[in-house]
């Protein structure tokens, strides 16, 4: 038996899902229309005849391939750095006892509360003085030093939930902490590492302020920064602007589709935290 209440729930859920999804479908459809078809202002989702040429034109008129490569390089290297270093630090906080551990962990949490925007002026000055603008170092290095407070937090929580017996047994056998970290804890953390990696990749792919500051040269730009220039460059050429944003969204949609389970699990873990 399906009650009217349940029908209402499904109807509401479907309606809201469409509200969230429709813009994307419409964006994809419009990116394949001719300017003339867009200008007619009909509500059609899909083009009369798909204009794949729009994409070719975007690639011709802007170095999208370069930007795409830059984005991929920064997102991948940054994700590796953040995942490994945050696991490394989390091991210290979760497994090892020391005076000052609580204080240091308090510092980790404190960094969540300081908006990055307030740090950019001195940071930018130092990187500029070092002549490292238009290199990926200013963006990548911080992720190799700590790996982000959220990531440390999540991995620490996960490690605290692991059985300690194996660590103690390994210590009795004379294994040192590096060995225990690399051979015992890290493999057991694989599910949590996947969560951190997926979320961090998404974060880095979307990151805007840092690449905008540190990679202003068109040959060094990332895709979001390049795309932000489209807004004025292709002000009235919606088909090109939207084709460009489809290219920028594609890797995220692919990661999203492939890593759905990881993402769902990640949200339930992060949501439980206090």
């Amino acid at each position: 038996m399906i009650s009217p209440g349940r029908v209402a729930i499904y109807a509401a859920l479907t309606l809201f899902s469409l509200l969230f999804l429709l813009p994307f479908i419409w964006q994809l459809g419009t990116s394949l229309k001719t300017p003339a078809e867009i200008a007619t202002g009909t509500f059609t989702l899909f083009p009369a005849e798909p204009q794949w040429e729009n994409y070719a034109e975007v690639f011709r008129r802007a170095p999208i391939a370069t930007w795409f490569f830059n984005s991929a390089f920064i997102a991948i290297v940054g994700t590796i750095g953040a995942t490994l270093t945050s696991a490394f630090c989390a091991y210290g906080f979760a497994v090892l006892h020391a005076r000052g551990s609580r204080l240091a962990f308090g510092m980790v949490l404190l960094t969540i509360l300081v908006p990055y925007q307030v740090l950019i002026i001195p940071e930018y000055i130092v990187w500029a003085k070092l002549g490292l603008i238009n290199t990926p170092l200013p963006i990548l290095l911080p992720w190799f030093l700590g790996g982000g407070a959220f990531n440390i937090f999540l991995l620490r929580q996960f490690m605290l939930g692991l059985p300690r017996d194996m660590v103690d047994a390994a210590r009795v056998d004379g294994a040192n902490e590096l060995h225990i970290f690399a051979r015992i804890i890290l493999p057991m953390c694989a599910p949590a590492l996947a969560i951190v990696a997926v979320f961090h990749f998404i974060y880095m792919w979307n990151d805007f302020l840092r690449p905008l500051l540190y990679l202003p040269d068109p040959s060094a730009m990332t895709l979001p920064v390049g795309l932000s220039g489209f807004v004025s460059k292709f002000a009235r050429q919606w088909h090109l602007l939207l084709a460009g944003s489809v290219v920028a969204l594609a890797p995220l949609l692919i990661v999203f589709a492939l890593a759905q389970r990881v993402i769902a699990r990640g949200i339930s873990i992060t949501g439980v935290r206090r």
């Binding site: 899902s17 994307f24 807004v231 969204l249």
Partner: peptide, 30 residues
């Protein structure tokens, strides 16, 4: 509410958050 296909709805709701950034801001401009 113990909905069937919850995983699917969940992902549909979450998608805009995942892709939030320049590309979606450009989409909204349009």
């Amino acid at each position: 509410q113990k909905v069937k296909g919850m995983a699917l709805f969940r992902m549909a709701f979450y998608l805009p958050t995942v892709v939030a950034g320049v590309a979606t801001a450009a989409l909204w401009r349009w």
